[in-house]
Amino acid sequence: MKVEDLEGGGAPLLGEPLPIELANATYAVRGRLVDGLQTVEHVAAWFRDNRHRFAVPLTDEDLARTGERDLAEVRALRDAVRTLTGVAVRGGDAPREAVETINEQVRAAPRWRELSWNEAPRALPRAALNPLVTARAEIAQLAVDLFGGSAIADLRACHAPGCVLYFLKDHPRREWCSAGCGNRARAARHYERNRKTS
């Protein structure tokens, strides 16, 4: 598998916190849900496209070793985060299975920093296990921090027509996951107003 040639599953990358970015790998196209992580290649491409955001570096060799187990684990983590985000946004009780899925993946990979001194000193993150497992554990840890911290109050579901994505409300006036959804929502309101007056 050549990592640079991988095509992703089309999941939008909006710059949300990693757990929400992963949850949004289930998205809608023309009102139909789409799974952006259907294959091993989709998973490797998603991590490739987000690798600059992880503490432990993910090399092309790490991503080329992505397998069926990684696919299953990433999809389970995505589904758990998506479920808990829905609970956080809409209210209700958190399913025990979703919480346990996140906790299992948090426990997966210890990491540390090592000192490197090539020209200048710097700390390099390292992990005992496969870097992809470490990256999943990092997303799970961020999910624990998100759902267990004050940012949970800022989680929102996008209310644009046909959108199923989540976002963290980082500005008082933000109401949509992206500018595109905001434009679609305004256009739909405009259309509805004009239709009623015609």
Rank of each mutant, 00 (worst) to 15 (best):
E4C: 10
D5Y: 08
P12C: 06
L13D: 12
E16F: 03
L18T: 05
P19Y: 02
V29I: 15
R30E: 15
G31C: 06
G31V: 13
V34S: 08
G36K: 04
L37Y: 01
L37Q: 03
A45N: 06
D49Y: 01
R53M: 09
R53C: 02
P57I: 13
L58V: 10
E61D: 14
D62I: 08
L63R: 03
R65L: 11
L71K: 00
R75A: 01
R82L: 03
T85P: 01
A88Y: 02
G92M: 05
P95S: 02
E100M: 10
T101S: 09
T101G: 01
R107V: 07
W117A: 13
A120V: 12
A123I: 07
A123P: 02
P125Q: 12
V133H: 07
E138A: 05
Q141R: 13
D145M: 11
D145R: 15
L146E: 06
G148V: 13
A151Q: 14
L155F: 05
P161E: 07
C163H: 03
V164D: 12
V164C: 14
K169E: 10
K169W: 07
H171F: 04
R173Q: 12
R174Y: 05
E175G: 08
R184I: 06
R193F: 07
N194P: 01
K196P: 00
